[in-house]
Deep mutational scan, measured.
Amino acid sequence: MPSETPQAEVGPTGCPHRSGPHSAKGSLEKGSPEDKEAKEPLWIRPDAPSRCTWQLGRPASESPHHHTAPAKSPKILPDILKKIGDTPMVRINKIGKKFGLKCELLAKCEFFNAGGSVKDRISLRMIEDAERDGTLKPGDTIIEPTSGNTGIGLALAAAVRGYRCIIVMPEKMSSEKVDVLRALGAEIVRTPTNARFDSPESHVGVAWRLKNEIPNSHILDQYRNASNPLAHYDTTADEILQQCDGKLDMLVASVGTGGTITGIARKLKEKCPGCRIIGVDPEGSILAEPEELNQTEQTTYEVEGIGYDFIPTVLDRTVVDKWFKSNDEEAFTFARMLIAQEGLLCGGSAGSTVAVAVKAAQELQEGQRCVVILPDSVRNYMTKFLSDRWMLQKGFLKEEDLTEKKPWWWHLRVQELGLSAPLTVLPTITCGHTIEILREKGFDQAPVVDEAGVILGMVTLGNMLSSLLAGKVQPSDQVGKVIYKQFKQIRLTDTLGRLSHILEMDHFALVV
């Protein structure tokens, strides 16, 4: 994948999101292997301009796509893939009243899908469409860049269908997702969380590099694949309309690839034109409109599966009536509230959605109805927002919020430890010299600072030695090549209790 991002070429006709291997024109390309080798690009942008032909009021008969309808489940399912879809609609009884809503608040519980998330729908649909058009064949390999849930859905379907599955996901995604993927037989590649989507090191860039190296491999490409919004247009939206008897006044959905909100909203605009569509985008993402909503100094966020630093091709923002931004604290607070007060075992993005819903639905009156999409299960986040310690460490809970008995030293300040200034190293000294210094002084790690004293990161003896043994660096290389740029900081005025929580999850903390 090139470091400079080429513009994806656009073909003359058809839909841009065809499933299957992508040609340089962004659509299915038939021909000899030699032709494909000559024409197939190194990668295709996940934010390529959409060429979708959908228009409100256009006859369904003019759609270029294969459409399906929700099917009634048999008493005995032939395999677990038949437990994807037909998820329950559940009334939220307490939270709406707590925040003064007059309307009825309903939750579409997508964590009841077989793999635990709304992404099971698009995973199965992308595979079925690729099999139907002859792209996927027995023994082929599926590769997908994902925040985890699409990966789980694909790995689940691949396990049943017999495909090899490789999932490329950023490091910030939970260990629970990784464990589930491994249990399903998927191979996992992790990428830096802070890598831009168009960087060769991003999950998108690495996935395309693997595709170019592995024979008979395919990126189904949830960011561009029409099967993504079509899955929701054909099934999720129809289920909502049936469950609500066609009567709903507002739908609120958090947005990642945009397939969920695009597919549902398009069908609702056709069948229930008075329904307002509300999009939820986390602070630090750029999906919301108008652009002024996205202006923030924050560039990272903890909530998973929603928000991006690019506009995915499948996201149709014209069908969203209003956007709201959400933050991590309210997302996790509301997710825990949904679990504790409503018994809905949902993930953090569901918290984002409901946090926005109780604001947006203030305009609705008694007798009206708001539906929220709860995308995934708490299963993926047992060591994250479900953990009091994690919430404390991230600053989303305060010590006084917890009532468990603490040891005698818990409320003492870090400054009472009488710490001395640490050994520091410059980023320009060599790895070999740094190892000598650390061994001589008896230290395992040291902060790396520039000549102005600005902290650049941390270097550890173990990481340097393993990097040297693996051949990633040489003793003569500058130590700046092996620094940890993500590390926890703590102030002298913070409590030892807070430091204790940090050290339970990290090997060190830097006192500043």
Score class of each variant (00 low, 15 high):
239 E>S: 06
146 T>Y: 02
6 P>R: 03
5 T>Y: 15
219 I>P: 00
227 S>L: 03
9 E>Q: 04
152 I>N: 05
161 R>L: 03
106 L>F: 15
143 I>N: 00
102 K>S: 01
191 T>M: 01
128 E>Q: 09
273 P>N: 05
234 D>G: 08
204 V>G: 06
145 P>M: 02
17 H>S: 09
19 S>T: 03
18 R>V: 13
178 V>D: 05
132 R>Y: 02
120 D>W: 05
84 I>H: 07
139 G>N: 05
203 H>P: 06
267 K>Y: 06
52 C>W: 03
156 L>R: 00
168 V>W: 00
77 L>R: 07
101 L>N: 00
145 P>V: 02
117 S>W: 03
22 H>P: 02
189 V>A: 14
53 T>V: 06
262 T>C: 09
223 Y>G: 00
143 I>H: 00
158 A>H: 02
229 P>I: 05
73 S>P: 13
60 A>F: 05
208 W>P: 12
245 D>M: 08
243 Q>V: 07
103 C>K: 00
65 H>C: 00
219 I>Q: 01
53 T>Y: 04
133 D>E: 13
134 G>E: 07
251 L>K: 03
172 K>R: 09
192 P>E: 06
74 P>G: 13
96 G>V: 09
86 D>L: 05
181 L>K: 02
259 G>Q: 01
236 T>A: 04
183 A>L: 05
182 R>H: 13
138 P>M: 04
225 N>P: 00
16 P>I: 12
222 Q>E: 05
110 E>N: 01
59 P>H: 09
138 P>L: 13
20 G>L: 11
234 D>A: 14
78 P>L: 12
156 L>N: 00
136 L>K: 00
252 V>Q: 07
2 P>W: 12
194 N>Y: 11
188 I>V: 09
149 N>R: 03
272 C>M: 11
11 G>Y: 14
35 D>A: 14
18 R>T: 11
101 L>C: 02
214 I>E: 05
81 L>H: 09
76 I>R: 02
218 H>D: 03
210 L>W: 01
57 G>P: 08
243 Q>I: 03
246 G>V: 05
147 S>K: 03
248 L>N: 01
198 D>Q: 06
67 H>L: 13
232 H>V: 02
87 T>C: 02
198 D>L: 08
223 Y>S: 00
154 L>H: 01
179 D>T: 07
177 K>M: 01
196 R>C: 08
272 C>K: 01
161 R>P: 07
